[in-house]
Amino acid sequence: MKSYPLKFQPEFKERVWGGRALEQFGFELPPGRPIGEGWMIGDHPNGTTKVVNGELAGLGLDEVRERHGKAFFGAKGYSEKTGRFPLLLKLLDCQDDLSVQVHPNDLYDRLPEGELGKTEMWYILDAKPGAKIIYGLRPDITRETLAEAIQNNRIMDCMQEVPVAAGDSFYIPAGTVHALCSGVLVAEIQQNSDTTYRLYDYDRPGLDGKPRDLHIEDSLNVIAYEGSGATRMTTELERSNEWLQLAASPYFIVEKGRLETEWSLAANSESFTLLVVCDGTGTLHWGEHKLALRTGDCFLLPAGSSEYRLSGEATLLRSYIP
Protein backbone atom coordinates (compact mmCIF):
# COMPACT_ATOMS: atom_id res chain seq x y z
CA MET A 1 0.00 0.00 0.00
CA LYS A 2 1.05 3.63 -0.45
CA SER A 3 2.32 5.23 2.75
CA TYR A 4 0.70 8.32 4.27
CA PRO A 5 1.01 10.47 7.44
CA LEU A 6 -0.17 8.54 10.50
CA LYS A 7 -1.98 9.95 13.52
CA PHE A 8 -2.40 7.88 16.68
CA GLN A 9 -4.69 7.54 19.67
CA PRO A 10 -2.54 8.48 22.69
CA GLU A 11 -2.12 6.13 25.64
CA PHE A 12 -2.57 8.09 28.87
CA LYS A 13 -0.61 7.18 31.98
CA GLU A 14 -1.73 7.95 35.53
CA ARG A 15 1.08 9.46 37.58
CA VAL A 16 1.20 10.70 41.16
CA TRP A 17 2.57 14.03 39.85
CA GLY A 18 0.08 14.41 36.97
CA GLY A 19 -3.07 16.46 36.44
CA ARG A 20 -5.63 17.27 33.76
CA ALA A 21 -3.81 19.82 31.60
CA LEU A 22 -3.69 17.55 28.55
CA GLU A 23 -7.44 18.09 28.20
CA GLN A 24 -6.67 21.53 26.76
CA PHE A 25 -5.53 19.78 23.58
CA GLY A 26 -8.94 18.19 23.13
CA PHE A 27 -7.93 14.78 24.43
CA GLU A 28 -10.48 12.74 26.38
CA LEU A 29 -8.66 11.65 29.53
CA PRO A 30 -9.71 8.86 31.88
CA PRO A 31 -12.08 10.57 34.34
CA GLY A 32 -10.99 11.63 37.82
CA ARG A 33 -7.38 10.51 37.56
CA PRO A 34 -4.10 12.47 37.59
CA ILE A 35 -2.71 11.96 34.09
CA GLY A 36 0.97 12.76 33.86
CA GLU A 37 1.92 11.28 30.49
CA GLY A 38 0.34 11.04 27.09
CA TRP A 39 2.25 8.50 25.02
CA MET A 40 1.56 10.03 21.62
CA ILE A 41 3.58 7.71 19.36
CA GLY A 42 4.85 4.53 20.98
CA ASP A 43 5.79 0.92 20.27
CA HIS A 44 6.72 -0.45 23.70
CA PRO A 45 5.49 -3.36 25.84
CA ASN A 46 4.20 -0.79 28.36
CA GLY A 47 2.29 1.21 25.76
CA THR A 48 1.61 0.89 22.04
CA THR A 49 -0.40 3.55 20.23
CA LYS A 50 -2.97 2.75 17.53
CA VAL A 51 -3.50 4.51 14.20
CA VAL A 52 -6.72 6.55 13.97
CA ASN A 53 -6.69 7.67 10.32
CA GLY A 54 -6.68 6.14 6.87
CA GLU A 55 -6.37 2.56 5.69
CA LEU A 56 -4.32 1.46 8.72
CA ALA A 57 -6.78 2.76 11.32
CA GLY A 58 -7.06 0.41 14.29
CA LEU A 59 -3.59 -1.10 13.91
CA GLY A 60 -0.96 -0.63 16.59
CA LEU A 61 2.36 0.93 15.68
CA ASP A 62 3.90 -2.49 16.27
CA GLU A 63 1.55 -4.04 13.71
CA VAL A 64 2.34 -1.34 11.16
CA ARG A 65 6.03 -2.05 11.74
CA GLU A 66 5.55 -5.78 11.28
CA ARG A 67 3.48 -5.40 8.10
CA HIS A 68 5.28 -2.61 6.31
CA GLY A 69 8.78 -2.54 7.77
CA LYS A 70 11.41 -0.41 6.10
CA ALA A 71 8.98 0.72 3.39
CA PHE A 72 7.31 2.90 6.05
CA PHE A 73 10.06 3.63 8.56
CA GLY A 74 13.23 3.59 6.43
CA ALA A 75 16.53 1.81 6.81
CA LYS A 76 17.20 3.68 10.08
CA GLY A 77 13.69 3.28 11.46
CA TYR A 78 14.42 0.39 13.82
CA SER A 79 16.33 -0.20 17.01
CA GLU A 80 19.13 -2.63 16.14
CA LYS A 81 18.87 -4.05 19.67
CA THR A 82 15.11 -4.61 20.01
CA GLY A 83 13.79 -4.49 16.45
CA ARG A 84 11.14 -2.02 17.59
CA PHE A 85 10.39 1.54 16.61
CA PRO A 86 13.38 3.42 18.06
CA LEU A 87 11.70 6.49 19.60
CA LEU A 88 8.92 7.30 22.04
CA LEU A 89 7.08 10.63 21.85
CA LYS A 90 5.26 11.95 24.94
CA LEU A 91 3.42 15.00 26.27
CA LEU A 92 3.93 15.50 30.03
CA ASP A 93 1.70 17.41 32.47
CA CYS A 94 3.65 18.13 35.66
CA GLN A 95 1.33 19.39 38.38
CA ASP A 96 3.80 18.25 41.04
CA ASP A 97 7.54 17.58 41.11
CA LEU A 98 8.79 14.42 39.43
CA SER A 99 11.28 12.20 41.22
CA VAL A 100 14.96 13.10 40.97
CA GLN A 101 16.12 10.47 38.51
CA VAL A 102 18.65 9.28 35.97
CA HIS A 103 18.56 6.92 32.98
CA PRO A 104 21.13 4.34 31.87
CA ASN A 105 22.71 4.10 28.43
CA ASP A 106 22.43 1.13 26.07
CA LEU A 107 25.57 -0.50 27.49
CA TYR A 108 24.53 -0.74 31.14
CA ASP A 109 24.78 -4.41 32.08
CA ARG A 110 21.78 -4.30 34.44
CA LEU A 111 19.25 -3.03 31.91
CA PRO A 112 16.01 -5.00 31.95
CA GLU A 113 15.89 -7.60 29.18
CA GLY A 114 14.71 -6.10 25.90
CA GLU A 115 15.13 -2.51 27.05
CA LEU A 116 17.19 0.32 25.60
CA GLY A 117 18.99 3.05 27.45
CA LYS A 118 17.25 6.39 27.58
CA THR A 119 18.59 9.58 26.07
CA GLU A 120 15.87 12.21 25.75
CA MET A 121 15.10 15.87 25.17
CA TRP A 122 12.47 18.26 26.56
CA TYR A 123 10.77 21.16 24.88
CA ILE A 124 8.85 23.38 27.32
CA LEU A 125 5.37 24.01 25.89
CA ASP A 126 4.15 26.05 28.85
CA ALA A 127 5.49 27.05 32.26
CA LYS A 128 3.89 28.81 35.21
CA PRO A 129 5.71 31.79 36.75
CA GLY A 130 8.65 30.60 38.83
CA ALA A 131 8.72 27.13 37.26
CA LYS A 132 12.02 25.27 37.34
CA ILE A 133 13.64 21.94 36.66
CA ILE A 134 16.54 19.99 38.14
CA TYR A 135 19.20 19.70 35.46
CA GLY A 136 22.40 17.96 36.42
CA LEU A 137 24.63 17.81 39.48
CA ARG A 138 26.72 20.65 40.85
CA PRO A 139 30.17 20.59 39.22
CA ASP A 140 31.99 19.43 42.37
CA ILE A 141 29.85 16.35 43.01
CA THR A 142 31.44 12.89 42.81
CA ARG A 143 29.98 9.45 43.36
CA GLU A 144 31.35 9.50 46.90
CA THR A 145 29.96 12.92 47.83
CA LEU A 146 26.58 12.09 46.30
CA ALA A 147 26.37 8.77 48.16
CA GLU A 148 27.22 10.56 51.41
CA ALA A 149 24.57 13.24 50.75
CA ILE A 150 21.96 10.54 50.12
CA GLN A 151 22.92 8.79 53.35
CA ASN A 152 22.53 12.09 55.27
CA ASN A 153 19.29 13.11 53.52
CA ARG A 154 20.97 16.10 51.83
CA ILE A 155 20.64 15.01 48.21
CA MET A 156 19.00 18.24 47.07
CA ASP A 157 22.16 20.14 48.06
CA CYS A 158 23.87 18.35 45.16
CA MET A 159 21.41 19.41 42.47
CA GLN A 160 21.42 22.27 39.98
CA GLU A 161 18.07 24.05 39.63
CA VAL A 162 17.29 25.93 36.41
CA PRO A 163 14.36 28.33 35.84
CA VAL A 164 12.32 27.53 32.72
CA ALA A 165 9.94 29.29 30.36
CA ALA A 166 7.92 28.27 27.33
CA GLY A 167 10.24 27.74 24.37
CA ASP A 168 13.19 26.44 26.39
CA SER A 169 14.82 23.24 25.16
CA PHE A 170 16.89 20.71 27.14
CA TYR A 171 18.96 17.82 25.77
CA ILE A 172 19.31 15.06 28.40
CA PRO A 173 21.77 12.32 27.49
CA ALA A 174 21.75 9.11 29.51
CA GLY A 175 23.61 9.65 32.77
CA THR A 176 22.20 13.14 33.39
CA VAL A 177 20.48 13.57 36.78
CA HIS A 178 17.26 15.49 36.18
CA ALA A 179 13.68 16.15 37.26
CA LEU A 180 10.80 18.15 35.90
CA CYS A 181 9.19 20.26 38.61
CA SER A 182 5.63 21.44 39.11
CA GLY A 183 4.01 23.86 36.70
CA VAL A 184 5.42 22.76 33.36
CA LEU A 185 3.91 21.19 30.25
CA VAL A 186 6.48 19.40 28.13
CA ALA A 187 6.97 17.60 24.81
CA GLU A 188 9.48 14.78 25.27
CA ILE A 189 11.30 12.90 22.52
CA GLN A 190 13.33 9.93 23.76
CA GLN A 191 14.74 6.55 23.00
CA ASN A 192 12.06 3.89 23.13
CA SER A 193 12.64 2.95 26.76
CA ASP A 194 10.70 2.93 30.02
CA THR A 195 13.66 2.48 32.38
CA THR A 196 14.05 5.12 35.10
CA TYR A 197 16.22 4.96 38.22
CA ARG A 198 14.93 7.15 41.07
CA LEU A 199 17.37 8.82 43.44
CA TYR A 200 14.84 10.75 45.52
CA ASP A 201 11.06 11.09 45.59
CA TYR A 202 10.34 13.59 48.38
CA ASP A 203 9.23 10.78 50.74
CA ARG A 204 5.77 10.79 49.19
CA PRO A 205 3.46 7.82 48.65
CA GLY A 206 2.65 6.48 45.20
CA LEU A 207 -0.80 6.01 43.73
CA ASP A 208 -1.19 2.86 45.84
CA GLY A 209 -0.44 4.76 49.06
CA LYS A 210 2.93 3.03 49.51
CA PRO A 211 6.38 4.65 49.16
CA ARG A 212 7.70 4.44 45.62
CA ASP A 213 10.83 2.38 45.04
CA LEU A 214 14.22 4.08 44.85
CA HIS A 215 17.13 2.71 42.83
CA ILE A 216 20.18 4.13 44.56
CA GLU A 217 22.84 1.63 43.50
CA ASP A 218 21.79 1.63 39.84
CA SER A 219 21.60 5.42 39.87
CA LEU A 220 25.07 5.80 41.35
CA ASN A 221 26.37 3.35 38.74
CA VAL A 222 25.00 5.13 35.64
CA ILE A 223 25.43 8.84 36.51
CA ALA A 224 27.92 10.66 34.25
CA TYR A 225 29.84 12.47 36.99
CA GLU A 226 32.27 14.08 34.54
CA GLY A 227 29.43 15.42 32.37
CA SER A 228 27.11 13.77 29.88
CA GLY A 229 27.10 16.37 27.12
CA ALA A 230 23.78 17.88 28.20
CA THR A 231 22.91 21.18 26.49
CA ARG A 232 20.09 23.71 26.75
CA MET A 233 18.91 26.71 24.79
CA THR A 234 16.20 29.34 24.50
CA THR A 235 14.67 28.75 21.10
CA GLU A 236 13.84 32.12 19.60
CA LEU A 237 13.17 31.88 15.86
CA GLU A 238 14.31 34.77 13.68
CA ARG A 239 12.51 33.67 10.51
CA SER A 240 9.56 31.51 9.56
CA ASN A 241 9.75 28.36 7.43
CA GLU A 242 13.25 27.46 8.62
CA TRP A 243 14.36 24.75 11.03
CA LEU A 244 16.44 25.47 14.14
CA GLN A 245 18.26 22.45 15.58
CA LEU A 246 17.48 21.91 19.26
CA ALA A 247 19.13 18.55 19.95
CA ALA A 248 21.45 16.21 18.09
CA SER A 249 22.30 12.74 19.35
CA PRO A 250 23.10 9.33 17.84
CA TYR A 251 19.43 8.48 18.43
CA PHE A 252 17.50 11.49 17.13
CA ILE A 253 17.67 14.98 15.70
CA VAL A 254 15.07 17.50 16.95
CA GLU A 255 14.37 20.79 15.18
CA LYS A 256 11.93 23.66 15.69
CA GLY A 257 10.22 25.73 13.00
CA ARG A 258 7.63 28.47 12.71
CA LEU A 259 4.99 28.05 10.01
CA GLU A 260 3.59 31.36 8.72
CA THR A 261 3.30 30.86 4.95
CA GLU A 262 2.91 27.68 2.92
CA TRP A 263 5.92 25.44 3.49
CA SER A 264 6.94 22.63 1.12
CA LEU A 265 9.00 19.84 2.67
CA ALA A 266 10.30 16.42 1.70
CA ALA A 267 10.33 13.34 3.92
CA ASN A 268 13.69 11.85 4.84
CA SER A 269 14.50 8.93 2.54
CA GLU A 270 16.11 6.78 5.28
CA SER A 271 14.08 7.73 8.37
CA PHE A 272 10.52 8.47 9.36
CA THR A 273 9.78 12.00 10.65
CA LEU A 274 7.85 12.83 13.82
CA LEU A 275 5.93 16.12 13.73
CA VAL A 276 4.59 17.86 16.87
CA VAL A 277 2.30 20.91 16.79
CA CYS A 278 3.42 23.03 19.77
CA ASP A 279 0.91 25.81 19.16
CA GLY A 280 -1.32 27.14 16.40
CA THR A 281 -3.37 25.53 13.66
CA GLY A 282 -2.88 24.60 10.04
CA THR A 283 -3.11 21.85 7.46
CA LEU A 284 -0.81 19.03 6.40
CA HIS A 285 -1.14 18.34 2.64
CA TRP A 286 0.18 15.40 0.64
CA GLY A 287 -0.99 14.63 -2.88
CA GLU A 288 -4.70 15.25 -3.00
CA HIS A 289 -5.11 14.58 0.70
CA LYS A 290 -4.92 16.70 3.83
CA LEU A 291 -5.06 16.55 7.62
CA ALA A 292 -5.91 19.35 10.03
CA LEU A 293 -3.20 20.47 12.46
CA ARG A 294 -3.98 21.75 15.95
CA THR A 295 -2.01 22.32 19.13
CA GLY A 296 -0.95 19.02 20.70
CA ASP A 297 -1.24 16.96 17.52
CA CYS A 298 1.54 14.51 16.71
CA PHE A 299 2.12 12.75 13.38
CA LEU A 300 4.41 10.12 11.96
CA LEU A 301 5.48 10.87 8.38
CA PRO A 302 6.77 7.68 6.74
CA ALA A 303 10.24 7.57 5.21
CA GLY A 304 10.49 8.46 1.54
CA SER A 305 6.98 9.91 1.39
CA SER A 306 6.24 12.17 -1.52
CA GLU A 307 6.65 15.86 -0.90
CA TYR A 308 4.25 17.29 1.65
CA ARG A 309 3.14 20.85 2.37
CA LEU A 310 2.19 22.72 5.51
CA SER A 311 -0.10 25.73 5.61
CA GLY A 312 -1.42 27.88 8.46
CA GLU A 313 0.26 29.46 11.47
CA ALA A 314 1.91 27.16 13.97
CA THR A 315 5.07 26.31 15.90
CA LEU A 316 6.34 22.83 15.09
CA LEU A 317 8.91 20.31 16.25
CA ARG A 318 10.20 17.63 13.92
CA SER A 319 12.41 14.69 14.76
CA TYR A 320 14.13 12.00 12.72
CA ILE A 321 16.96 9.48 12.97
CA PRO A 322 20.39 10.82 11.92
Rank of each mutant, 00 (worst) to 15 (best):
T145E: 06
T145D: 09
T145M: 06
L146H: 06
A147E: 14
A149Q: 09
I150K: 13
I150P: 12
I150V: 14
Q151F: 07
N152F: 10
N153I: 02
N153P: 01
I155L: 15
I155C: 14
I155E: 15
M156W: 14
M156V: 15
D157R: 04
C158P: 02
C158R: 06
E161T: 14
V162G: 07
V162M: 14
V164R: 14
A165H: 10
A166H: 05
A166Y: 08
D168L: 11
F170P: 05
I172V: 13
I172T: 04
I172A: 08
A174I: 08
T176Q: 04
T176Y: 00
V177L: 10
H178G: 02
A179H: 01
L180A: 07
L180M: 12
L180I: 02
C181V: 06
S182Y: 08
S182C: 12
V184F: 07
V184N: 10
V184S: 05
L185V: 07
L185D: 02
V186I: 12
V186T: 05
V186M: 04
A187Q: 01
A187E: 01
A187P: 00
E188I: 06
I189Q: 13
Q190P: 06
Q191D: 12
N192A: 15
S193N: 14
D194M: 08
D194T: 09
T195E: 11
T196L: 12
Y197D: 13
R198V: 07
R198K: 11
Y200P: 09
Y200I: 06
D201N: 07
D201A: 03
Y202T: 09
D203R: 11
D203M: 04
P205M: 13
G206Q: 11
G206A: 09
L207T: 00
D208T: 09
D208K: 02
D208H: 04
P211Y: 01
P211T: 00
R212K: 02
D213K: 08
L214G: 11
H215D: 07
H215R: 06
H215S: 04
I216Y: 08
E217L: 13
E217A: 15
E217R: 14
D218W: 03
D218Y: 07
L220Q: 03
L220G: 03
